[in-house]
Amino acid sequence: MSIVSFKGTREGLAITFGEGAWHDVLNELATQLNRPSAQSFFQGARVLLETGERALDVAQIEELIALLAQHRMTLTAISGEAHTRAAFEQVRATMPAPPESLAEETREASAPNAFGKHALLVQRTVRSGQNIKYAGTILVIGDVNPGAQVVAEGDVIVWGKLRGVVHAGAAGDDNAMVGALILAPTQLRIGKQIARAPDDKRARQFPEVARVRDGRIIVEPWIAS
């Protein structure tokens, strides 16, 4: 087993430390996190650490938290030996609470797609108050409820009902698209364009796709072409 290994879970990114000197562990972790391909994969993730038999003290845990913070990652839990857990409790008592957003939980599912862009796969209902942001395409298998927000630098595809706020091409890309089985967002943005649902709109019961044409957002039936 390698000295540092990663695994995606529903709760966040699980990182397991194997055997070896502490500074080797830290170096390896730093190297892994700095790999260019890992950047968007790890950014913002919630981290669950499995330390096994290794005893970590408060200073070591703080070191770790600082390293993770450089990648906007938050350490939310440690499972392992009792002293390590106690030290973590002590550190955590002085830490601000982790963000409640679940946006990062699904990062592990992110992988380069056929277009060479990264895609984030979200397999659950995105509920009111939840916010999903991603630097590539977002694919939701489930509904996006009113009060939820999905913001992608690439496309947004929802295999379900899209009723929240959606922004595709959020870095200014007017070529991005939004597609959903039921497309009924509260507000829809693509690149710099904004459209909101007409106040009397009744959702059409077939898949639709929204794109920008001639500086306006156009919605049309989503048919294979």
């Binding site: 709760e11 409640e100 679940l102 659950r124 509920r127 009111s128 108050g129 009060g147």
Partner: peptide
Amino acid sequence: VRDADRVIGLTEASE
């Protein structure tokens, strides 16, 4: 319903 949805999300997040 909107507020319930929010609370369901938070409950799910708290494992």
